[in-house]
């Protein structure tokens, strides 16, 4: 199996792990959200890679073309992107509220403030 032939999958996995790593290690809530976005975006790339059919073109019916790429994953990913946007929006709204009530968006400091209550 040629590793290079699947480079888009490797990119997706690399992005996924990067995003996951950011979520795990960064205490800043905004950075966590960015990591989460990276993570979900990588899945979009994974899906779109699945849709590619070797030698296929865009799925628009045109004369002389026999092979099309699968359009369904694109449709699905449109939905998933909407979901991702909504998640980010809710997340950012929560971060704003947290900043309002705690005065910080660092998880360590938030925790200290709660514990000292």
């Amino acid at each position: 199996m040629n590793i290079g032939a699947h480079y888009n999958y490797w990119v997706a996995i690399f992005l996924m792990m990067t995003g996951f790593y950011v979520v795990i290690t960064h205490g800043n809530l905004i950075k966590k959200l960015i990591g989460l976005n990276l993570f979900t975006t990588s899945v979009f790339i994974l899906y779109i890679s699945l849709a590619k059919v070797k030698g296929g073109t865009a799925p628009i019916i045109a004369p002389g073309i026999e092979v099309y790429s699968n359009p369904l994953p694109h449709v699905l990913i449109l939905t998933a992107i909407v979901v991702g946007v909504a998640t980010t929006a809710v997340g950012l709204a929560l971060v704003l509220l947290i900043y309002d009530r705690y005065g910080t968006i660092e998880e360590d400091e938030i925790r200290l403030k709660d514990d000292s209550l």
Partner: peptide, 17 residues
């Protein structure tokens, strides 16, 4: 450290991994 902080989002995510 991150692994010991049972309440932290990061450590839960680590568990997931």
């Amino acid at each position: 450290g991150i692994l010991a902080r049972s309440w932290y989002t990061g450590s839960i995510a680590l568990w997931v991994a």
